[in-house]
């Protein structure tokens, strides 16, 4: 039985990052949880993005080496609606993706999550996404990177968006494109905070997904063969190590049962109170590993 790999996204620490936390602090916090992987936001942690200075690159490689963390996923955006009056062309969108693939590779990353523009409230990606990606499959192959758009609330697993990505994988036969699952899709209880936003009634009305879209965890098994990375989204783990929003027991059971052996990358998205994320991430790392052990002992089934 394969075991899971554990990482942390620096996004977990947003707002702390740059105010009460440096890049080195983030490496220290992540490594001390016992995680082995670091996930970053490209246009975020990379100072001078998209062309970091050689001094910054030196610092990056020194930190990777000192803290023994493996670069996992590099988050990128394709700014489809580039201005209010025009969208990116296919050539421009493909060029943005190529630039990010090269930068991610240079920093040692193996996965790149592109965020495409969408055209609907169900988050249908702009149809140009296929051309952006298809023009970059050879490059991704050369660089050893898997491009993985995320399945993120309010988009569930059984949905045309997810199916569209799967159809693309089947049609092209590529091994350089896969699904990222954001575990927020399994959320089954309402949020009180969404990042820096305290959720009010109006937000709940317009963004019903904040109450949880409750994807049944066993549906993970239906798509597991296409999943290459998991962002372990969470918002609040209480003092008894109970997650107040994500039902981790059935989620971990389903992930383990599928045979998935890739990364679970902690992605805290709760209250942005200074320093809160640091311990929340530690709690989640303990919780996830405890549940994996319980599964291995036959206690989770």
């Amino acid at each position: 039985m394969g075991s899971l790999q554990y990482g942390v996204s620096v996004y977990s620490y947003v707002n702390d990052y740059g105010s009460v936390m440096t890049l080195e602090d983030a490496f220290d916090h992540i490594a001390d949880t016992g995680a082995t992987g670091i996930e970053i936001l490209g246009e975020g942690q990379v100072e001078g993005y998209p062309e970091p200075s050689s001094a910054w690159l030196d610092q990056w490689f020194a930190l990777v080496d000192r803290y023994k963390l493996e670069p996992t996923n590099f988050c990128a955006w394709v700014d489809t609606r580039i201005t209010l009056t025009r969208n990116l062309t296919i050539a421009e969108g493909a060029a943005e993706l190529a630039r990010d693939l090269r930068l991610a590779h240079r920093l040692g990353f193996k996965f790149l999550r592109p965020k495409f523009g969408v055209t609907s409230h169900e988050l249908d990606p702009d149809p140009q996404w296929q051309a952006y990606v298809e023009r970059n499959l050879d490059l991704a192959h050369q660089l050893g990177i898997i491009i993985c758009p995320e399945i993120h609330a309010p988009t569930p697993i059984k949905h045309r968006v997810t199916q569209g990505y799967i159809d693309f994988i089947e049609r092209t036969g590529t091994r350089n494109f896969g699904l990222m699952i954001d575990t927020g899709i399994f959320q089954d209880r309402p949020l009180t905070h969404w990042g820096s936003h305290q959720i009010n009634d109006e937000m709940r009305e317009h963004m019903a997904f904040l109450n949880g879209i409750k994807v049944p965890p066993e549906q993970f098994l239906d798509i597991a063969q296409y999943v290459v990375f998991i962002q372990a989204k969470f918002h609040d783990i209480d003092d008894t190590l109970e997650d107040l929003n994500i039902p981790w027991r059935p989620v971990i059971a389903a992930i383990k049962r599928s045979g998935y052996s890739g990364y679970l990358s902690s992605e805290y998205e709760g209250l942005r109170s200074p320093w809160r994320a640091i311990d929340q991430v530690r709690r989640q790392q303990v919780l996830l590993r405890k549940l994996e052990r319980e599964y291995d002992l036959g206690l989770l089934a």
């Binding site: 700014d79 609606r81 523009g117 969408v118 055209t119 409230h121 988050l123």
Partner: peptide, 11 residues
Amino acid sequence: IRYSYFPPDVH
């Protein structure tokens, strides 16, 4: 802030 990955009417 404009987010291309938010639905067009609320982006």
